[in-house]
Simulated scan of single mutants.
Amino acid sequence: MKILITGTAGFIGFKLALAFARRGDQVVGLDNINDYYDIRVKHGRLEHSGFPPPYEYGRLTWSEKYPELGFIKLNLEDRQGLEKLFKEQKFDRVCNLAAQAGVRYSLTNPQAYVDSNLVGYVNLLECCRHNNVQHFVFASSSSVYGLNETQPFSTHDNVDHPISLYAATKKSNELMAHTYAHLYGLPSTGLRFFTVYGPWGRPDMALFLFTKAILEDQPINVFNHGRMQRDFTYIDDIVEGVIRVVDKAPQGNPDWSGLDPDPSSSRAPYKIYNIGNNNPVELMDFITTLEQVLGKKARKNLLPMQPGDVPSTYADVQDLVQDLGYKPETPVKEGIMEFVGWYRDFFKV
């Protein structure tokens, strides 16, 4: 199987590309290596995968460690570059993890989200439909649940009230994928990830920010005065779930009815899954566990809720279990220990 994975200098994409390559699939990774966060981490992921710098735009290279793993620096907005890549490589399946990420950044730089998450995303869909791609898998987000207060969050619930532009672009991705599944028969699966963490994680996420601040004797910002819950999901659990999804293209649901439409499926070959730990953790308990692992107390700035944030996330993963026989279950303390070990090694602290 030949797979295109976008966002392979990113957290999930990097881990997923390695997992498929180690399994024996041929993988091409794509990323534009932007500077949204500390580029040392992105370069570190690529070098760990066998791609030393420099990274020449538009040039496909192959890993020094994994013969089946390639990488190309490319923007999703570069329609001609994408079309050329698809024509040459003839991918069987595509997993789109590239996106402008982050809820808070979308409040100040909305154009970046339009360019990557909407324009670039449509370019990718067009390439898939014109090149006989067998399955298009894409990253959505738990952020799409927005003002929905029914817990745990279910893919069968309505999600028409996002509260950040980031979430709105992810909801738009789901709608566009359904349209291509309906019009062109492109099998499409969306994955709503819940607070992914672990080694090689994103520097703008809570665990990374907290660890850095505590080790540098700086205070940490704790929003909503700590009255938050997150369904923290370990990176290896996410990767296993994505692999199972990529391997199983959806079929149309014969029981789907337009009189009582289920948002998670369709008559078309389309499906949405949550991938979360199904076990929300109190933010203050999460911080206490991190303090224990670091052997150091945190100084806390207790702050009000930030615009675009929600007080709690909690994934209903019943469909994931039923359809794919899988449920994430790595305990948070175990995941934090793995992250802290990586962090100390990578930053030499």
Rank of each mutant, 00 (worst) to 15 (best):
P311C: 06
V133P: 02
H182C: 12
E47H: 09
M1G: 12
D115N: 15
F20G: 11
Q134H: 07
L69Y: 06
Q100A: 11
L290C: 11
I220H: 08
Y197S: 08
F194I: 07
D231T: 11
C128L: 03
V28Q: 01
N158R: 15
G325C: 04
V321K: 14
K2Q: 10
R59G: 00
P187H: 05
D237I: 04
K84Y: 04
I336Y: 08
G44C: 09
G58I: 09
R93A: 12
S188E: 11
S49W: 00
S116W: 00
V159I: 10
N173A: 14
I275W: 03
L215G: 01
P311N: 13
E149H: 03
V321Q: 14
I12E: 08
D247S: 13
L85M: 11
F347W: 12
Y121H: 14
Y113K: 06
T189F: 07
L290A: 11
T6M: 02
G295S: 05
K42V: 04
S143V: 00
K271R: 15
L124Y: 03
G226S: 09
A168K: 03
I272G: 05
Q151F: 15
K300T: 05
V349G: 01
T195M: 08
A101T: 13
D38F: 04
L259Q: 11
I235S: 14
A181C: 09
K327P: 00
Q26M: 02
T169H: 04
P52G: 08
S116P: 00
S143K: 02
T233G: 04
G7T: 10
K73V: 01
Y105D: 15
Q151S: 02
H178R: 15
A17Y: 07
S257Q: 09
Y273G: 13
Q251W: 01
E68H: 12
A268T: 08
M337D: 11
V27G: 04
P54C: 04
Y184M: 09
G7W: 03
R129Y: 05
V239L: 05
D92I: 11
E149D: 07
D217P: 03
E64P: 00
K212V: 01
R93S: 05
V317S: 13
I220Q: 07
K84M: 05
V28I: 15
I72Y: 05
T179P: 00
L125C: 12
M284E: 13
P304Q: 11
R202P: 00
R202K: 10
Q80C: 01
G24L: 10
S154Y: 01
G226L: 04
V41N: 02
Q292E: 14
D309Q: 12
T288L: 10
R230H: 12
L46N: 10
N131E: 06
D247T: 04
G146E: 08
L183W: 10
V245F: 00
A98N: 05
D255N: 15
D237L: 12
Y121M: 03
D92E: 12
L175D: 14
L46A: 06
E338H: 14
F347T: 10
L290P: 09
S141A: 11
P187T: 02
A167I: 07
R104Y: 03
L303I: 11
V137H: 03
K271I: 03
A19K: 12
H161M: 06
T211E: 09
C127H: 05
Y270N: 09
R299A: 11
Y273E: 05
